[in-house]
Each structure stands twice: as C-alpha cells, then as structure tokens.
Simulated assay, not measured.
Amino acid sequence: MIEPIAASAAAAVSMDAPAAGPAASAEESAAAPGIRPRPAASTEIHISAPGQALAGGKQAPAVRDNSDVDDSGLPDQAKDAIKRLRELRAQLERKLQELEAAKNANTGTPDQKRVRIAVLQQEIASLGAAITTTTATLNQAIRDLSSEQQMLAGSLAMH
C-alpha cells in the first residue's frame, strides 16, 4: 500500500517503483530508490506561430507550390515577382501571428515585451515595403503584356 506524502513536502515526486514502507517520511521517500524528485517550479515552453496555428487546428501558412505560376506562360520577370509576392505575404502572415502572440504573452518583463513588439512591428513594416516594391516590379514586368496576361498575372499574384 502507498502512503500519501505529507503536504509539507518541498518537492513533488513521481514513482518508478513501489514506495518505501508506511513508516517512511517524505524526505526518506524522495531519496528512496525508484523515486525521483520532480522540480516544484514549472517549465516554460514557447511555441512558434505556425506551431500555434497547427495546435489550434488550423493549417499554418506553408510554402506554396508555384507550379501554377511556372505553367502560366508569363515572362520570367513576372513569374519571379509573383513568387516573391507570395513568399512575402506568407512571411507577413507569420509575423502578424507572432505579433499577436507577443501582445498576449505573459512572459518576460514589460520592457522585454515592448521591445519584442517593437521589433516585430519593424519587421512587419519592412515586409510591407518589400511587398510594395515587388508589386511595382510586377507592374513594370506586365506593362507590355496583353490584357489577358495582365489579368492572369493579377490573379496569380492574389492567390
């Protein structure tokens, strides 16, 4: 029979084998063979934004298959710009998820939280600027194409 450990024990224990006899104290039980002490403090685990999305049952933004772009018949410069736009949008989505997680985090000091949020906001601004530049590159690349090809490029860029 296993005797309950006294409530005043400093550390919780887990058992791999039967406990010591009924006369054993909490300290003796913790040192007994087959019983290992478990730290009283909890362990902190940080999950990335894609991991959080998967844990929540949602699919994380994944690397997209660009075969539709490759098969489009558009000039290489337009194809490259469309692929880059897709990549930048996926990165932006991940950074926005990270920002939301950082705003809701209860870890670290308030100063650490502010710094992390500021860094993420800067990264988001940089991604926005890169999207603007890449969109301009795409517009330049499709300027001399037929209206059908321009609509195709726009459609591919939006998906």
Rank of each mutant, 00 (worst) to 15 (best):
I5F: 04
A40P: 01
A78T: 07
L74N: 00
A105R: 10
Q77A: 15
K58M: 08
S147A: 09
A9H: 03
A9L: 02
A136N: 13
M151A: 15
Q150T: 04
R64C: 03
T132A: 12
P33R: 09
A11K: 13
A129T: 15
N66G: 06
N106C: 02
P18I: 05
P75F: 09
A157Y: 03
A55H: 09
A90S: 14
T135M: 11
P110A: 07
I45G: 01
T134A: 00
A129C: 06
I117G: 02
A55M: 15
A17Y: 02
H159P: 00
S72C: 04
M1R: 13
P61E: 03
A20D: 11
S147H: 08
I35Y: 00
E148H: 08
K95N: 11
K58R: 11
A11V: 12
S29C: 10
A157G: 10
P110L: 07
S8T: 12
A153R: 05
A24H: 02
D144E: 12
R114D: 15
M15E: 05
I35A: 00
R84Y: 04
L88A: 05
A90D: 15
E93V: 06
I82L: 10
V69W: 04
P39G: 09
Q52P: 01
Q121N: 13
L152N: 05
S14Y: 14
Q91L: 09
A60C: 01
K79E: 15
D65Y: 06
D70V: 05
T43V: 13
A101S: 10
R116D: 10
S8L: 08
L99Q: 13
G34T: 01
S147G: 00
A60N: 02
D16T: 02
I131L: 11
P50W: 00
G21C: 03
S146W: 07
G57V: 07
G51Y: 06
L92M: 12
S146R: 02
T137E: 15
A20L: 14
Q112H: 08
V69F: 08
K83T: 12
A136G: 06
A53Q: 14
A9E: 06
T43Q: 12
A26G: 01
I35F: 00
P37V: 03
